[in-house]
């Protein structure tokens, strides 16, 4: 039962990533693309967590934490760039 649920979840999250990627490529504005990139980070955390359950390994967790942090910092840096035209003031 768990493996069926995992298979369905993998499919759904992959579909979510495909939709996000479509928005990332299509734009139309810079904030749209940044938002799509941020969502892609969160979706990849979901994918890593599912992979961790599927393979029964907790190692993927460290990767998920790193992606969560780097994704947030990246989004903030890009927004700062849009707001000020500069990242480090």
């Amino acid at each position: 039962m768990l493996s069926t649920a995992l298979a369905i979840a993998f499919g759904l999250v992959t579909a979510a990533m495909a939709l996000t990627l479509w928005r990332l490529l299509r734009g139309p504005d810079q904030p749209d693309r940044i938002l799509a990139l941020d969502t892609l980070y969160v979706n990849s955390i979901a994918l890593l967590v599912l992979l961790g359950i599927h393979l029964g390994s907790e190692l993927y967790f460290e990767a998920a934490i790193l992606i969560a942090m780097m994704g947030f910092v990246g989004t903030v840096a890009l927004c700062k760039y849009l707001l000020r035209g500069d990242i480090i003031e």
């Binding site: 768990l2 979510a16 939709l19 996000t20 928005r23 599912l50």
Partner: peptide
């Protein structure tokens, strides 16, 4: 069963979030 429900519901919400990103009209 509880785990399966949590996983599927979580994945559905993730998909709905991306669906909103893809089909809404303005930023």
């Amino acid at each position: 069963a509880a785990l399966s429900i949590l996983i599927v519901v979580g994945a559905i919400f993730t998909l709905i979030g991306s669906l909103g990103l893809a089909r809404m009209p303005d930023f």
